[in-house]
Design a protein around this nucleic acid. Structure first.
Lengths: 292, 292
DNA sequence: CAGGAGCTATAGACCACGTCTATGATCAAC
DNA sequence: GTTGATCATAGACGTGGTCTATAGCTCCTG
């Protein structure tokens, strides 16, 4: 019917201000333009929308009916524009991050706090899961970004290196004799080793390292959380393979110490994953910026 | 913010159909135009609204939020356009008529019925009042048109002559002796005359006529409704001055007869009044068309 | 009553911008 | 590899929305 919705904006302001001249000012147009626009509307409806008098204009019965619809419509558009501006300014919106519980707890927390302080109106949604689960979340569009250990090889994903973590073996008071020694892998395997459950990325990594030296690493105990890994080591149940940064408190206070090995353990990189060629929300872009 | 609301229409269709190509078809545009429009929106918000893939497009988080507003807005506009079309086609709307009760009851009824049959969806509002009241209603915008006796002299009003009425004196069985006589005003004044209340237009008219012949007409009885005027005459309380068309039933059945005078009583014209230079609703225009 | 200050309507010119065609790039399916 | 979708880009075109200038009207004021 009407092939130019701009006319409704003009109509809205004309009706609202009761004056074509005022409407023109509000819209940064000239009065004849507004006059012309209203005429177009009236012609295409075949109805008169305004009474014109020397003081301005007034809605006719039919104009009043039109206004009741258009007013709502214009208000919605205004709200939409305000909302978009808020999203842009990070005054609104949400950020959905996927990652492992331990990464959230031990490492991402300061970044999350920082982000939340800077942009308190953005709702944070944290979804924990294993690396494959996080990748699946990403592909399903359920999270905006995932934080996992590298390497990730998936052509659909774009991975930014964020920070390095160093895994290491730690033990508690029971094994004080090892404190100032440099162990060979041979020696290490004499002790009971505690590892994270089979499907974890860190577990696979260390198993491969041992294999590359010709050893098969078999854990005495397998646990399902980083907290248990730490707790078991503290109680002297064995030597745990953990991320050094996750036990920094225990290392400082001396309840755990790091076993020195004669071979280097390669550091593991944590990466922030996003979908390749998919636009990011403002919030996601901002978070990545802060986390790098 | 956005200085072209057309873009929202394009966005709406793109989001609704999930395809720029489909949106282009729906809007009778080419695909590049739609692509361009969406880009404009995205640029001016500084946000990405759609994920593009080889199957079409999909809303981003931010696009989804925008859509929730714009969808409502567009629906309202569509409803508005449908409503305007209905008003134009007289499939909707209202018609507010002012006039005297007796005109409504005795003369306008067939026109009202006719109009209502032809346009059953138009609500009729009938407001009765004296001629000055009806004029006031018109000027206050409370009615679309008024139906009153001419002449009306008011530069703000436009009056269309509609139909003629003939006032006359009638009497009942008590005065059968006058049935086949032609009376002079002199003779008439020997009888008790029943008139409508002082402020009525018909009353003023007949008083003036008598005065122009040198007589002062003083009624025996004054009543406030046409029905009473008729009833009193039937009961033989006097000779009533009524509009002939309003007593056509009584004249036919013989319960009243018309007094013949030796001077002509000028006919009175009924006019349909509207505000001069004020646009009429479609319904009002249509009614006037039918009533002429 | 003349003159001024509002208001809206009309006429005509101009140029930005929205639309088009043509083509490229990418992806999925066969 | 080829075909047939999709959206993006480039550049040309022309229309329609905006402008200036002016007229017409009503109301108010000295």
């Amino acid at each position: 019917m009407i092939n130019n919705y701009e006319l409704y904006k003009v109509f809205y302001w004309a009706a609202k201000t009761g004056s074509l001249t005022q409407a023109a000012k509000a819209l940064y147009l000239t009065q004849p333009s507004v006059s012309h626009a209203i005429k177009q509307l009236e012609d295409s409806f075949g109805l008169t929308l305004f009474y014109r008098n020397s003081k301005g204009v007034e809605l006719t019965q039919e104009g009043t009916i039109l206004y009741s619809y258009i007013e709502q419509s214009q208000i919605l558009i205004t709200m939409a524009e305000e909302k978009m501006a808020a999203l842009k300014n990070l005054d609104s919106g949400e950020l959905r991050i996927g990652g492992s519980d331990s990464l959230f707890k031990h490492y991402l927390l300061p970044y999350l706090e920082d982000f939340h302080k800077k942009h308190p109106s953005i709702k944070l949604h944290l979804n924990h899961g294993t690396t494959p689960e996080v990748i699946a979340f990403l592909k399903e569009g359920r999270i905006d970004l995932g934080v996992v250990r590298m390497p990730i090889v998936d052509s659909q994903l774009e991975v930014r290196e964020s920070f390095q973590l160093q895994d290491c073996f730690v033990a508690g008071a029971q094994y004080t004799e090892l404190k100032n020694m440099v162990l060979t892998l041979d020696m290490l395997m004499e002790y009971p080793v505690i590892l994270f459950s089979r499907n974890s990325r860190a577990r696979m990594a260390i198993t491969e390292i041992f294999q590359s030296y010709g050893y098969t690493l078999k854990p005495e105990i397998e646990v399902g959380s980083v907290d248990l890994l730490i707790e078991f080591a503290r109680r002297g149940l064995g030597i745990s393979y953990v991320t050094r940064e996750f036990v920094s408190k225990e290392l400082e206070e001396g309840s755990l110490f790091e076993i020195q090995l004669d071979v280097p353990l390669p550091p593991s990189q944590v990466g922030i994953m996003t979908m390749r060629n998919m636009p990011l929300t403002s919030a996601a872009r901002r978070f990545i910026e802060l986390a790098q």
